[in-house]
């Protein structure tokens, strides 16, 4: 039995000697998780025939991707890339209106495209949020787009290119606060 106290002295010593560097767990409060998410947005195409027939096109598109809480509560900043491809024989002005729930215009973008040939592909990037973009609230309150195509070349010309169209492409990239 005389050795049994030695054992407990050992474990007691172990406990006493057990050391730890000073830790500051409050640092966890500083953790920020901000992700950069990107994805496709809207694709629209229209034929030259339709432009010739109607003289112009105006299309309303529901888009609630920006005003859902998951996005609106977390978005910090971002950008939308628009790509316009014109293979029609028309000089076109494209206007994109950002509309709120009541159909009121929150903001708009204007693009002008020269007639084909050759096929014209133009990229535009519009920034939102800090440091120098448009107000992020525009997107948070957007519930639909109005895409208007104004034909400035009459309604008789026909492109020499096969299957002439106006194509509207878009994608969006945003910084989102995952943890706050």
């Amino acid at each position: 039995m005389k050795n049994s106290p030695n054992l407990f002295y050992f474990f007691w010593l172990l406990t006493i000697l057990a050391c730890s560097d000073a830790q500051n767990f409050d640092q966890a409060k500083d953790l920020e998780v901000i992700t950069e998410a990107t994805g496709p947005m809207v694709y629209l195409e229209t034929t030259e025939d339709l432009i010739n027939t109607t003289g112009g096109v105006s299309q309303n598109i529901d888009f609630n991707g920006f005003n859902v809480d998951l996005f609106a509560d977390r978005v910090i900043s971002g950008s939308i890339i628009f790509q316009l491809e014109n293979s029609t024989s028309k000089q076109l002005d494209i206007r994109i209106d950002f509309l709120d729930e009541g159909g009121n215009t929150l903001d708009f973008e204007l693009f002008s495209l020269n007639p084909a040939p050759p096929t014209v592909i133009s990229d535009y990037e519009v920034f939102y949020g800090p440091p120098s973009g448009k107000s992020i609230d525009i997107l948070k309150n957007t519930s639909s787009f109005q895409i208007s195509i104004l034909n400035n070349s009459g309604n008789t010309s026909v492109s020499s290119l096969p299957d002439p169209k106006l194509i509207f492409r878009s994608s969006a990239s945003f910084k989102l606060r995952v943890l706050e």
Binding site: G39, P40, M41, V42, Y43, L44, E45, T46, T47, D49, L50, V57, Q59, N60, I61, D62, F63, N64, G65, S170, S171
Partner: peptide, 21 residues
């Protein structure tokens, strides 16, 4: 797999609302 909300004219010209849903 998606490339976003797609509107093909003139086929979709009458669908003014409900595309998102």
């Amino acid at each position: 797999s998606t490339e976003g909300l797609e509107v093909i004219l003139p086929e979709d010209i009458i669908n003014g609302t409900g595309q998102w849903r």
